[in-house]
Design a protein around this nucleic acid. Sequence first.
RNA 1: GCGGAUGUGGCGAAAUGGUAGACGCGCAAGGUUUAGGACCUUGUGGCCGUAAGGCUUUGGGGGUUCGAGUCCCUUCAUCCGCACCA
Length: 753
Amino acid sequence: MKKYTPQDIEKKWQDRWEKEGTYKVNLDAAKKPFYNLMMFPYPSAEGLHVGNVYAFTGADIYGRFTRMKGFDVFEPIGLDGFGIHSENYALKVNKNPRKLAKISEENFYRQLHLIGNTFDWDRTVETYDPDYYKWTQWIFIQLFKKGLAYRKKSPVNFCPKDLTVLADEQVINGACERCGTIVEKRDLEQWFFRITDYAQRLLDNLEGLNWSEKVKIAQKNWIGRSEGLMIDFDDIKVFTTRPETADGATFLVLSPEHPYIEEIKKRVDAKKAQEIDDYVTKVKNQKSKVKSNKEKSGVFTGFYVKNPVTNKNIPVWIADYVLMEYGTGAIMAVPVEDERDREFAKAHKIEIAPTSLKVSPKGQKTVNYHLRDWLISRQRYWGPPIPMINCSKCGWQPVLEKDLPVLLPDVSDWKPKGTGKSPLASIESFVNTTCPKCGGSAKRETDVSDTFLDSAWYFFRYTSTEEKKSPWIESRIKKWLPVHMYIGGAEHSVLHLLYSRFVTMVFKDMGLVDFEEPFARFYAHGLLIKEGAKMSKSKGNVIVPDEYIKKYGADTLRTYLMFLGPYNQGGDFYDSGIEGIFKFLNRVYKLLSEVKLEEQKSKNSLQMMHKTVKRVTEDMENLRFNTAIAKLMEWYNFLAKQTSISKEEVLTFLKLLAPFAPHMTEELYSSYSKDSIHLSSWPKFEAELLKEDIATIVVQVNGKFRDSIAVDSSKIADQKLVEGLARKGRARNYIKDIKKIIYVPGKILNFVV
RNA sequence: GCGGAUGUGGCGAAAUGGUAGACGCGCAAGGUUUAGGACCUUGUGGCCGUAAGGCUUUGGGGGUUCGAGUCCCUUCAUCCGCACCA
């Protein structure tokens, strides 16, 4: 009897697969390319999280299944190693992020080897590798040249503890997402990408994508298209989705950042101007962007504009409940219709007038989007320097392409200075340079770019990691993109996926690629939790995959992760559950390694095999891994009761299990074949064999189960015969005064009485 | 407030509108073993019954249907996003 020792088996096969290049794909010669992409992880120093393993295992199982169906599956992996997370950790342990990245990289790749995925280790991408970020910088320059990158002074969130600017999405309830410190506002000149120019296209294209529906909805809501009218109240433009309420507009409210405030100050008396200034200053100095919803602060400007519908003069107020970022930064307030306006009107004793809901002003039809331009600048060290040079004569100039990459200086003092400027600003040898246009002395941009830019194009680079002269090899992109299957967490359903789509659209417009949607299919996996609770360090319930791999082996961990719930809904990891899968694999190993072979099989056995192949195949196609495993267990339970098993049954069972438990199945398969099971072809089933001789027909009375009867399959069309059998059976006591009989041939006979 | 999801045994969960609870965990009884937390067999939603069997059961309440966990309406609860978006 062979004992199942995953520790020996797994190492042996991992080494052999790598040595023999079992999963290597010739990217240029592949006949049936299938790009199986998973979201690359950001490498934390703590190592691979079991959530990563969950995501990658599901994706790998799908990839292995697809490979066995005859496709050339390309399954690359890399590290999203730049960015605030890595830098913060470096700050915490007071080590250079560059050195930490190397340590994390080794650790991550070591762990990623252990889980038994079919990664192509020759084509890894690390975003902090100059060979990679050279092209990230190149992309920035392309966007700049196309007029899609611009500078704008705008109030930003500043975390006084991390000493850095935060994106809106990094601010949770007014506090820094990392450290919980209340965020302040600061004004900074920064680079933005004009993603809003693409808002409509990003919205329109969604319909044609084979993506998880909830992700499409999330993107749609994020883009947030709303149609309305632009109405002029004298010089002030107002956007509204309810133009028919304009006759109820009794005042106008400007955002405190509205440019027209300067004009108003000139026209009102000095006392009023001072009041306005005081209010605007007060709002600016507010610690947090988030305010109480109840309190409606504001100031009357002393200025009036004409309501174009009623022709009445209405007062102009300034209040911070109106956002400069949305619409025109000014609203017509209709207190009778809008709750916020009503609260404000009550608080400040402003007239509330009725609206007929009938009169609509001639306005200009407008579309507004919730989507805002993409803030690229980060006042940080650990990112790709933005490749721009500011010349006092020529203005902002892109670094010449031959001078790329702009290397991130390897310095000891890389920590944020608390000035709001990037650490690079204090490195004179970096800052001082010459203008690429006039050759005069000039200064470099010292901010680095957002990590989301790194991850917006990494799937292009995977195909062409050996290429030095261009970001990718054109023929490879033609062959391998758009990505056939992308699997990742729903938490990235908005930003990462939207940015990747945007960047790809820009490439299309530049004529670099001939498609504009990067991911043909996107599948969102669920969240893995531990015994009913979200995993977190503070709870101390984080699962470290290494321990489980050491104890049970990767095959058990993989199979268990997939068994504990539907892949798109996540699962609950509980320690006693993994034992069950370990036992299952042990039993399979034992049964199939000491099996007594025979070739003649009963029809019953054949049917069971073909039925299992059919059901498992269907589950695999739909990524229903938990039920696929359950069906294999059913077949195992059947086989274990047989006195002997055919070779075909053994091989078929191993193949169906191979994507889940690649090492163990390879070990057993190797006694039958020299070739890898993972390069063998997925079993097929014969529909003819699935036909049962005897049909089981459920007999119901008023829809209630009363009996089940066995009928020869060739006779199920004969309703009279079936009825006759049913009347003789257990149901007979319930059948009287029949009003109607429903018969679904071969399935259900229902007497309605 | 808006958007998304989820409510089924002691637990993780199955179920093209057609026998609810597959599969696994746990538990119980028995076997095996020097012993075991290893392995094997059987049982296992609840109630009644020695049994055959019956009744009941998918968060609550309505509805459609011969038939509803599944479809429709309504309501409650939990989780995850986003929120003064005009």
